[in-house]
Simulated assay, not measured.
Amino acid sequence: MHWDQLPAKWIMGYSDISVLLLAVTLTTGLATAHGANLIDQRGEYADQTTGIWEEVLSLKAGESITQYSSPYYQKEWDHDHPSPCIFHLTEPTSWKLIAQNETVQINGRLLGGCIDVIRHLIGTPYGQVKDFQNRYINGEPIIWYLENCELNTVDMRRSLVQMKLAGWFDNCAGLLFGRSAVHLPVDHYTEEDLFSELYEELKLPIVYDIDCGHVPPQITFVNGAYAEIEAGNGKGKVREVFIP
């Protein structure tokens, strides 16, 4: 791929596509959008969290937008019972914290995606996080948003250790983890154990069960955008600013 010839054009999606999104942003400095795939937009209407993607991608340099945690999320997929809104949002959303405080605020530049696939960029020319920080965002700290499709808690723990040892969490302001249907205990090792251990190691704010990934709906996160994150009492707010 001729990276220097890529047009300044939006690429948006999640899951496997997020490995392309992150590689493009890290390598070229171009912003990319982690949000609903095209197939998730085929209903007669969209929920408010999903539907804001077009407004996010219409922002110009210097403009900002604020997105909020969803009221409800979809517990499981039900393709046999289509509805005017693609998602069946029935379960109350609750953003959870691993921290000593009841609320957290995190500021930095967004990077992330589906941990199942973006971890494979480590050690390649397309996963140079420090180079991206120095070259494109003046050394500003990173806010990592990560979501999990198929990894159990032990596999995810190993992946996070690899990311840490590769320096991806150096100069990091905090971590956000999406809801996952596969965070089941392995030999009593739970997602709470995983996130608590990571918090003790990194001493960084950690928010989980956010609106991101395979358990919809999901906020549109723009790789490279400056963000201000607020979370507490089960709610969350994401303000993104398109800094040139």
Results as ranks from 00 to 15, higher is better:
Ala99Trp: 11
Asp116Cys: 14
Val129Asn: 03
Asp116Pro: 14
Cys85Trp: 04
Asp78Arg: 13
Arg119Gln: 14
Gln74Phe: 06
Asn152Ser: 07
Lys96Ile: 01
Thr103Gln: 15
Val161Pro: 03
Lys164Ser: 10
His88Ile: 04
Pro92Phe: 06
Ser83Phe: 08
Tyr136Phe: 15
Cys114Arg: 07
Pro92Ser: 07
Gly113Ser: 10
Val129Thr: 12
Leu121Val: 05
His120Ala: 06
Gly123Tyr: 01
Ile86Trp: 11
Leu121Gly: 06
Ile115Lys: 07
Asn148Arg: 08
Cys85Pro: 04
Arg119Thr: 12
Gly123Ser: 00
Phe87Arg: 12
Asn171Ile: 07
Ser83Met: 11
Ile118Tyr: 11
Asn148Phe: 02
Gly108His: 06
Met163Gln: 02
Gly174Arg: 03
Arg135Trp: 06
Lys96Val: 05
Pro92Asp: 05
Gly123Ile: 00
His88Ala: 04
Leu160Thr: 07
Glu76Lys: 13
Lys96Asn: 10
Glu140Lys: 15
Tyr126Gln: 02
Arg158Ile: 13
Trp77Lys: 15
Trp95Asn: 07
Ser94Met: 12
Gly123Gln: 01
Trp95Glu: 12
Leu111Tyr: 13
Glu150Asp: 14
Gly139Lys: 10
Leu121Thr: 02
Gly127Ser: 11
Ser94Trp: 05
Glu91Ala: 12
Cys114Lys: 04
Leu121Lys: 00
Leu110Lys: 11
Gln128Thr: 00
Leu146Thr: 08
His120Ile: 01
His79Glu: 09
Asn101Glu: 13
Ile115Asp: 03
Gly139Arg: 10
Tyr145Asp: 08
Thr103Ile: 00
Val161Ala: 11
Asp78Lys: 13
Cys114Gly: 12
Pro92Val: 02
Phe132Gln: 00
Glu150Lys: 11
Gln133Cys: 06
Gly123Pro: 09
Ala166Gln: 02
Lys164Ile: 00
Ile143Cys: 09
Asn171Cys: 00
Tyr145Gly: 11
Phe87Tyr: 14
Val104Asp: 04
Phe132Gly: 03
Gly127Cys: 07
Gln105Pro: 00
Gly112Pro: 13
Asn134Trp: 01
Gly167Val: 02
Tyr145Leu: 15
Arg157Gly: 04
Gln100Asp: 14
Phe87Lys: 12
Arg119Ser: 02
Lys164Cys: 01
Asn152Leu: 08
Cys85Tyr: 01
Pro125Arg: 13
Gln74Tyr: 00
Gly174Trp: 02
Leu151Lys: 13
Ile98Phe: 05
Gly112Val: 10
Leu146Ile: 11
Ile143Glu: 02
Asp80Pro: 09
Leu151Asn: 12
Tyr126Ala: 04
His88Pro: 04
Ile86Val: 15
Gly113Cys: 09
Pro141Asn: 02
Arg109Asn: 13
Ile118Leu: 11
Gly174Gln: 00
Asn101Val: 08
Lys130Met: 04
Ile86Asp: 03
Thr124Pro: 09
Ile143Asn: 09
Asp116Val: 12
Arg109Glu: 06
Thr103Arg: 07
Gly174Phe: 06
Asn134His: 08
Glu147Tyr: 15
Leu110Asn: 10
Met163Ala: 14
Glu150Pro: 02
Gly127Thr: 03
Leu165Val: 05
Asn152Tyr: 09
Asp131His: 13
Pro141Ala: 04
Gln128Met: 04
Cys149Asp: 08
Gly174Thr: 01
Gln105Arg: 15
Tyr126Asp: 03
Ala173Asn: 03
His81Asp: 08
Pro92Lys: 05
Thr124Cys: 01
Trp168Glu: 01
Trp168Thr: 04
Val129Lys: 08
Gly108Ile: 01
Asp116Asn: 15
Leu110Gln: 02
Lys164Asn: 14
